[in-house]
Amino acid sequence: MSSSALPKPQMCGLLAKCLTFHIVGVITVSLEVAASYKFGAAEPRKKAYADFYKNQDSTKDFEEMRKAGIFQSTK
């Protein structure tokens, strides 16, 4: 019979060790998601709005809609 004893399980500080590992993981993942949203969705949307309003003529659009009969209060 071999008398190799099993190592004792870590009892003291186990929760703190696990929480530290998971908190670091959560912070890393949340920063990656935030960065991917910012550069993948928010910045292209801002650029599209800026490009649209750079060349937009609201008076011309209003006159086209008025001539098309969309507005009933203006003739």
Results as ranks from 00 to 15, higher is better:
46 K>C: 05
17 K>D: 10
23 I>V: 02
30 S>A: 10
7 P>Q: 02
65 M>V: 10
21 F>W: 06
33 V>W: 02
16 A>I: 03
31 L>R: 00
54 K>G: 04
14 L>R: 06
58 S>T: 14
6 L>V: 01
73 S>G: 14
38 K>N: 09
65 M>S: 13
59 T>A: 15
2 S>R: 00
36 S>V: 08
7 P>R: 03
52 F>W: 02
59 T>S: 13
41 A>Y: 07
16 A>H: 08
53 Y>L: 06
58 S>A: 15
26 V>L: 09
65 M>Q: 15
51 D>Q: 07
32 E>S: 11
3 S>E: 04
30 S>D: 06
31 L>F: 10
40 G>Q: 01
57 D>E: 10
65 M>N: 14
18 C>A: 13
24 V>Q: 08
30 S>V: 05
63 E>H: 11
66 R>F: 06
62 F>H: 13
36 S>E: 11
17 K>C: 01
46 K>D: 08
67 K>L: 12
62 F>A: 12
39 F>C: 05
71 F>S: 12
7 P>Y: 00
51 D>M: 09
5 A>K: 00
57 D>K: 10
14 L>H: 07
27 I>E: 03
41 A>H: 07
18 C>R: 09
4 S>Q: 03
38 K>A: 05
58 S>W: 15
17 K>P: 01
11 M>K: 08
62 F>I: 08
16 A>Q: 08
15 L>T: 11
74 T>V: 15
33 V>I: 10
12 C>F: 12
20 T>N: 11
55 N>Q: 13
19 L>T: 08
4 S>G: 02
64 E>I: 14
7 P>S: 02
25 G>Y: 04
21 F>S: 04
67 K>G: 14
32 E>C: 14
50 A>C: 01
15 L>M: 11
17 K>I: 00
21 F>G: 01
15 L>P: 03
32 E>T: 09
50 A>L: 05
9 P>I: 04
53 Y>A: 04
36 S>L: 11
39 F>H: 12
60 K>I: 06
16 A>Y: 03
43 E>R: 06
66 R>G: 09
74 T>F: 15
45 R>I: 00
55 N>P: 01
20 T>G: 09
61 D>K: 12
34 A>V: 02
2 S>I: 00
2 S>E: 00
2 S>L: 01
72 Q>K: 15
38 K>E: 12
66 R>E: 07
71 F>L: 14
73 S>D: 14
47 K>D: 12
32 E>R: 02
16 A>N: 04
30 S>H: 04
38 K>W: 07
13 G>K: 01
54 K>F: 10
48 A>N: 02
55 N>H: 13
30 S>E: 11
26 V>P: 00
68 A>E: 14
37 Y>D: 08
42 A>D: 07
70 I>Y: 15
20 T>Y: 04
42 A>Y: 07
